[in-house]
């Protein structure tokens, strides 16, 4: 039998983390409890975070939005502020897991699990989201690309938790797009995914674009040189084709049970073509 704790606020959590530094933390349990049952992990104690109200919900603070780490995917999906400002995140969450998984799983859980296939990650990369890391005595902010170090590896020290996510509200990207290719539509771990946000002028030129791919490397991947090359170019098949080689060169896909590396390479390039749907 494992010790399990259900703290009702942050004060109680800090006390627990102090006396049980080896405890594994979970919120929805949709990742951690699966790993525990399959024997991949066997933590001596568990802390379930689901009752900590302080880390739940969406707050607007100045020109930023704070999303508490314990906000469930379902809550985000129906949230007015998220729907209005971050459609790319909404599109990703809409295809994450299934309705009950979205009722249980949280955005913080999806981030700290740090799977290259995590559906919220590519949108958070293109939105330049910042992670708020808190401990009893300190708080710091890290961009998501610095927070996630590799598959399942994150920049979180002893006694620290991911408290939530900060996203700039008015970034001016009217066109927002997320697509995931999986083996089936629901409950599918992505084979390749791509998030894109962009500004396109009325004469169909790309002003500004940010792109991120999931499941094609150890972390979600962005390529600033690809983005710079596209900027100023017309949003056409030819224009996008010009950068596909660079994308192919940058990604590091692997063969696994879901797909081969070469298939992932092919799809990663082709997902770019979908942006043609937004041409004016």
């Amino acid at each position: 039998m494992t010790d399990i704790f259900l703290p009702s606020d942050l004060d109680e959590l800090w006390r627990l983390l102090n006396i049980k530094p080896e405890a594994a933390l979970y919120a929805g349990g949709t990742d951690l409890l699966v790993k525990r049952r399959s024997g991949l992990i066997d933590p001596p104690s568990l802390v379930c975070l689901e009752r900590i109200q302080e880390l739940k919900g969406v707050k607007e603070c100045g020109d930023e939005v704070f999303v508490g780490a314990l906000t469930t995917h379902s809550e985000l999906l129906s949230h007015r502020v998220i729907r209005k400002h971050f459609p790319v995140l909404i599109q990703a969450i809409a295809v994450l897991g299934s309705p009950p998984v979205r009722n249980m799983g949280t955005i913080g859980g999806n981030i700290v699990t740090a799977s290259p296939a995590g559906d919220t990650l590519a949108p958070l990369y293109v939105l330049d989201a910042q992670m708020e890391i808190r401990s009893l005595s300190s708080s710091r902010r890290v961009p998501i690309s610095a927070f996630i170090l590799g598959p399942g590896q994150i920049d979180l020290g002893q006694g620290e938790i991911l408290a939530g996510v900060w996203i700039k509200r008015h970034q001016g990207f009217r066109l927002q797009h997320y697509e995931k290719v999986g083996r089936r539509n629901a409950l599918a771990c992505s084979v390749v995914s791509m998030a894109a946000i962009m500004r396109v002028s009325s004469d169909n030129r790309i002003y500004e674009i940010r792109l991120a791919w999931g499941s094609v490397g150890p972390t979600v991947m962005r390529f600033p040189e690809v983005e710079r090359l596209l900027e100023g170019k017309p949003l056409t098949v030819d224009g996008l084709n010009d950068v596909i080689e660079l994308v192919h060169a940058g990604i590091k896909p692997i063969d696994d049970i879901r797909a081969t590396a070469s298939y992932r390479r092919e799809v990663a390039g082709r997902l770019l073509h979908r942006l043609i749907n937004y041409s004016t």
Binding site: L6, G29, V34, L46, C48, P100, M104
Partner: peptide, 29 residues
């Protein structure tokens, strides 16, 4: 499936659908 992939163990908790294979007893309090 016992891992959240099949929905067979669905229950309602405070009116929301959840999976009883991915909840531990203490969470029912």
């Amino acid at each position: 499936c016992g891992r959240g992939d099949c929905g067979a163990c669905s229950i309602l908790i405070d009116g929301d659908q959840r999976l009883s294979c991915l909840m531990l007893a203490v969470q029912l309090e």
